[in-house]
Design a binder for these strands. Structure first.
Lengths: 232, 232
DNA sequence: CATGCGGGCATCGTATACGATCTCAGATCC
DNA sequence: GGATCTGAGATCGTATACGATGCCCGCATG
């Protein structure tokens, strides 16, 4: 839990030097999430320790933490590698996200300020633009920003952590998903707008929840087409 | 993630000796969950290492893992203690559980066998009995068993992990919650039966989801009365 | 040529050691 | 008397060292 908090602490301490294991964690985390290390990549303790100019002990801790988050797999006497994400895991994660995002947004339903909605809408318009410019990378990144903008308003920190975890796992995969389905992307933008409309109208939270959930569930196809290019 | 799997692996390896860090993890985990170590308890690395006849290194790893699960808080240069659980965290966890249990059961809706329902019902009847015998400890334990029996049928492993995590956090608290509200407990048993009825009737998954969610959300009061005995 | 068997090498798992940091009690100063 | 300083003890953080384990490759054998 508390990834956001943990990182905030580490940086918030300003003057206090972050521990080495924290540095190792952040480096590895970022490289996994941004795709520098792809799924299956072998994480050798010694090598990482040498690169970061530290011994294996803090590196091990960092890797154990990443393991707990599901970003790496670790086998006794064998070693660690970046976790693979198969179709089933991908699907389960997406499905989970559909439920918990729906939950978060429905909990936040009465709490959105005009500013929240305006900012989300601005992001969505930038998505539309990046779609027109056929910039899938930016589109994908804005998409996450849009969703986070909505779910971050939820006051439930535990749900927030679950959402974080899901995004992290998907990020690794999204990395290799530059090609996407324009039609679906366009539909996403419209669905986003519809969701914002529901929020502005003060619609029933449950209805908003279902809209968010349905939107999320409609998305996987775009990715799965990429994962199994032969299947179309 | 994959707590259940991790533990299963460790034990499934039968002949292979589990690593020391694994042993440390299991011991600490169990003691935290079963309440031997209550919230706030200070976990001193050296002491634990001596008790388990190992050095601090594997103990540190175990504690970091527990930290990632939210069972332990860890401050640099200060040390680790069993995580406190305040009213807000408790509420957020309960609320999250209400959503994800609803999700799991609705996903499992079409998959329950007669045996699944029968076993769940048997557990529920034992709950009724333990209520009559005024045995809150057993009641609480059966309650978790009942809920798990329903959610375990869900095919989504990610949601399963989220549910696991929630239960673990609540377990620490439940420990100190021997007194409960009999009326609410009785209502729980009836709600359980109603949920089983919906499942048997092949009701709309969404309706089942809402029933599960509402049932879960009704429960906190019983605990909160205990946490703030002065508030009634 | 296929297959089974060492043996060396890479890597992991953990113990030990020691400097760094925090806590807390007691002394000192206003 | 209360506040601040200081030093000792406790505990943490990490480096280093070394035994344990698994993997891979070459060699012998059928």
């Amino acid at each position: 839990m508390s990834e956001r908090r943990a990182r905030a602490d580490a940086e918030g301490g300003s003057t206090a030097a972050p521990s080495k294991s924290q540095r190792a964690y952040e480096l590895l985390h970022d490289r996994i999430v941004d795709g520098t290390y792809s799924p299956g990549y072998r994480l050798v303790l010694d090598a990482i320790g040498r690169e970061l100019d530290m011994s294996v002990v803090p590196v091990r801790e960092a890797i154990r933490r990443l393991e707990a988050e599901g970003l790496v797999t670790f086998e006794r006497n064998i070693g660690a590698r970046v976790a693979e994400i198969d179709e089933l895991q991908y699907h389960d994660t997406m499905e989970t996200l559909s439920f918990v995002e729906g939950a978060a947004v429905s909990l936040a339903a009465g709490l959105y300020s005009k500013r929240d909605v305006d900012e989300a809408r601005a992001i969505n318009e930038r998505m539309r633009a990046s779609l027109a410019a056929f910039d899938p990378v930016q589109f994908t990144s804005l998409n996450e920003a849009f969703h986070r903008r909505l779910t971050d308003v939820s006051p439930n920190a535990v749900i927030g952590d679950v959402i974080d975890t899901c995004w992290k796992r998907l990020a690794r995969l999204r990395q290799s998903t530059f090609s996407f389905v324009p039609n679906r992307a366009l539909a996403s933008v419209d669905e986003h707008e519809a969701i914002l409309g529901l929020i502005e109208d003060g619609a029933d939270p449950r209805r908003i929840e279902l809209a968010v959930r349905a939107h999320r569930l409609a998305t996987p196809d775009a990715y799965l087409q990429r994962i199994h290019p032969s299947d179309h």
